[in-house]
Design a protein around this nucleic acid. Structure first.
Ligand SMILES: [Zn+2]
Ligand SMILES: [Zn+2]
Length: 798
DNA sequence: AGCACGCCGACT
DNA sequence: GTCGGCGTGCTC
């Protein structure tokens, strides 16, 4: 008898190991590693991943049998199976979480427990069944007495329990028809068909012309063959009805084929070096550092083409906000239908279909956001990460992986190079390139030698003294000028620091969340005050709850408010707004870009998403309204973030014929990140910032770990975290720096108190063991409900 | 995560 | 005495 090793979908420390199950004979031939199955686990039924098959087990208890298969073919490749083990270890997360994140969202399955009642039971217990024979069993929905009742009914077999597998991802099936007749038979049949049966004759003619074709019903309808005709055809035995899977098409528009562009010398060198590594099958990591407009994308495209030409596949990752229809169109125009796209803005059905195209080997090129690094591609020849410094490449919740590390792992497995591209590389990557761990490739010239824009900095401290608008005097004047010249303008509002709250003008009262240490934010659409941390909602007060003043009103600068102000100041200007609210609908993002690109608007304003990847030749003025909002929260990466953003935005303006202008509004005009962004001097920024990182013992000089602990009692949290910090200080070498515990900036969230410990280290062979120990202890002892999470190489220390 | 077992205080 | 509250431990 064969045994399967299974990781069950129960994300806890204690169940983080494979469980052995017997394979029933009926499944023996079909089951494979990487498939999902249903298994009995304790008293319930759960989903699990088959990670191995063998003929024995080390478990000496009584084995249970697998109930059934969830998938008909493996959904996790052998490579990804191995990767999940490594990742769970590296990110201190559960294997099941890693496996689940490798699948497109819609494929994640959960079991829903259902209760089935006879009519009699249903009517005897209306409080439980509400007149229905089948209900969801949510433990939280019932009180203990009801649960006891249900349990008793179950024991006496009066109600049945069954589990329903739920998943959003389903293929779309369309009705289709296939001929059962050969050509001679059709000839024969035609004799008996009346002349006036036009539909039937039409159908038979089509069947005659393409005997082996499967015709979609929609297509037949279009050709004038109606449903009734088809019903007769089925009855007559001319055709059979079948179903055809329809692949959803996430691409809005068809594209025309494009061909490789001529490269300049730098680009050619870059392509040669990368192609060489692809050909030699070495897992070199390249850092492709190229200023905005230096033609990185063309380098990517030609290297990908080379990988395809030797029979390999290619994977290209792009940050969330840069994965625009423009960039996808460019890739599709080069590689056609071989391209699959994985984007969070796609529906779960579209993502499922695209994923299937990859898994079945149809798609050879994958373009996508962070999670696309788990695309089930085989025989990868090249992995590209564009804008490698982008913070969206680090997943903020478990498993907290850094895409760059996963990319390097897959590159090593597939013996292929990784290309990290950026105009402003992360300090980590650049430092590694300096040490020779990565190979540095530079693209120092802007294509066609477009001039750099002129950047000016406006000190908003001075400005505030005589101007209470968001727009500075200088920026307003320039806007007026550009409007007169019929040139276009982009205004960027940094998303961070965005706030929308209400405050009493008399006593200064700001409504706070009752569960968290944070102000409530105003939501105009629902007319409520919401807490974005715990979801608490309450009505907007009309009088101040503290002093009963009626002068309680709304404050905040969001893109909506900015739009109002701009329209106020420039009533004749045509203004477009692009933010999360205006791009929620499918295709709306594209619509805004097309409209602005066609110069049907003068001013485009919005959040981060307008900062990247968009090319509008008519834009000659870019205003950054709150350039330094990242600097408000002092953290070791804030300068880097600010510099990267400003450099990127500045690159947007400035063309061959018209010099661009950038206005940066800030409260910190002398800050080096802002000053160096003005001159677009990455080299100097790199060296300045490295010195600061060195002095502060920050990455890339030190590795870092953030341990966060929370419990309903602040005292308890502080105490337990002190214990952990003490343990780490004793256990680790004296070269490791253990900081804290300190309360988090927002200490209370959802009535839990959060504390953190930071570890900085260079070499700590015992660290992994120590942290695993902390995790194990935290779950076995329960430590008064202390929940621990570990973030390996966190983005920030906040 | 569930789900059951078991021990102790409150109440018929 | 017994009901039910929650802490503890297990799930192939
Ligand atoms: Zn008040
Ligand atoms: Zn809250």
């Amino acid at each position: 008898m064969q045994v399967a090793q299974i990781i069950v979908d129960v994300p806890t420390r204690q169940t983080n190991n494979p469980y052995s199950y017997l394979i029933p004979e009926s499944l023996e031939k079909q089951i494979q590693s990487g498939m999902r199955v249903q298994v009995p686990f304790g008293r319930r039924r759960v989903t699990g991943f088959v990670i191995g098959l063998s003929d024995k087990t080390s478990f000496d208890g009584k084995l249970k049998k697998i109930s059934s298969l969830v998938d008909l073919s493996p959904v996790i490749t052998p490579e990804l199976l191995k990767l999940s083990e490594w990742m769970a270890d590296k990110t201190f997360s559960f294997k099941i979480s890693c496996l689940q994140t490798m699948l497109p969202g819609g494929m994640r399955t959960k079991f829903k427990k259902k209760l089935l009642a006879t009519d009699q039971i249903r009517d005897t217990y209306p409080a439980i069944f509400h007149g229905q024979n089948e209900i969801d069993y949510d433990r939280q929905k019932f009180n203990n007495k009801t649960i006891a009742e249900i349990l008793a009914l179950r024991k006496s077999n009066q109600i049945k329990v069954h589990y329903e597998l739920s998943s959003h991802a389903k293929p779309i099936l369309s009705r289709a028809y296939k001929s059962k007749l050969n050509q001679q038979q059709i000839d024969h049949v035609l004799i008996d068909v009346q002349k006036r049966a036009v539909g039937q004759r039409r159908l038979l003619k089509m069947l005659y012309e393409q005997p082996s074709q499967t015709f979609l019903q929609s297509k037949l309808l279009h050709e004038g063959v109606g449903k009734q005709v088809l019903d007769t055809a089925v009855k007559q035995g001319w055709v059979t009805e079948t179903q055809v899977r329809r692949i959803r098409n996430p691409f809005l528009q068809p594209v025309s084929k494009s061909y490789p562009l001529d490269l300049n010398e730098d680009q050619q060198t870059a392509v040669n070096r990368i192609n060489n590594a692809i050909g030699k099958q070495t897992d070199t990591t390249f850092l492709l550092e190229g200023v905005t407009g230096s033609g990185k994308t063309e380098v990517y495209l030609q290297a990908m083409a080379h990988a395809l030409s030797i029979g390999k596949t290619a994977l290209m990752l792009v940050p969330e906000i840069t994965l625009t229809p423009q960039i996808v169109g460019r890739i599709r125009s080069r590689f056609g239908d071989q391209v699959a796209m994985l984007h969070s803005a796609m529906s779960s059905g579209e993502r499922y279909d695209e994923w299937q195209r990859i898994n079945s080997g149809q798609a050879k090129v994958v373009v996508g956001v962070r999670s696309a690094i788990f695309a089930p591609l085989e025989n990868i020849g090249l992995i590209i990460m564009d804008e490698e410094h982008d913070s969206s490449y680090k997943q903020s919740d478990t498993p907290r992986y850094q895409t760059r590390d996963v990319a390097k792992w897959r590159a090593a497995y597939n013996h292929c190079p990784v290309v990290l591209g950026s105009a402003t590389p992360s300090l980590e990557s650049r430092a590694r390139a300096m040490k020779g761990v990565y190979q540095l490739i530079m693209l120092p010239h802007r294509f066609n030698n477009h001039a750099l824009p002129h950047v000016s900095i406006v000190d908003m401290k001075d400005e505030m003294a005589h101007n209470r608008h968001i727009l500075s005097k200088r920026l307003s004047n320039l806007i007026t000028d550009r409007l007169e010249k019929h040139e276009q303008i982009i205004l960027l509002l940094n998303r961070r620091g965005y706030s929308s709250f209400i405050m009493c003008r008399d006593c200064g009262y700001v409504p706070q969340c009752p569960n968290c240490d944070i102000s409530l934010t105003m939501h105009k659409d629902t007319h409520t005050l919401n807490c974005h941390l715990c979801g608490h909602k309450e009505p907007i007060p009309t009088v101040c709850p503290k002093c009963h003043s009626k002068r309680i009103r709304h404050y905040g600068i969001g893109s909506q408010q900015l739009e109002e102000q701009v329209k106020d100041l420039f009533p004749t200007a045509r203004v477009l707004r692009m933010d999360v609210d205006t791009t929620r609908k499918k295709g709306s993002h594209e619509a805004i870009i097309n409209k602005f690109g066609a110069h049907k608007a003068d001013i485009l304003l919005g959040t981060q998403m307008i900062a990247k990847g968009l090319d509008f030749p008519e834009v000659t003025l870019v205003g950054v309204l709150n350039a330094d909002s990242a600097l408000q929260f002092p953290d070791f990466r804030s300068s880097e973030r600010t510099f990267q953003l400003l450099t990127q935005v500045s690159g947007r303006s400035g063309r061959a014929d018209k010099q661009g202008e950038v206005v940066i509004q800030t409260f910190n005009p002398d800050h080096y990140a802002i000053q160096l962004a003005k001159t677009q001097d990455y080299e100097k920024f790199y060296h300045t910032e490295m010195r600061i990182r060195h002095l502060g013992k920050y990455p890339p000089y030190y590795f870092t770990i953030k341990i966060t602990g929370s419990s309903p009692s602040e005292k308890q949290t502080a105490y337990e975290m002190h214990q952990i910090a003490g343990f780490l200080r004793r256990y680790l070498t004296n070269k490791a720096i253990v900081l804290g515990p300190t309360p988090k900036t927002i200490t209370r969230v959802n009535n839990r108190y959060f504390y953190q410990i930071i570890i900085k280290y260079r070499q700590e062979p015992k660290l992994k063991a120590a942290l695993d120990d902390v995790l194990v202890k935290s779950q076995t002892k329960q430590q008064g409900g202390l929940l621990i999470s570990i973030d390996n190489e966190p983005l920030d220390f906040m």
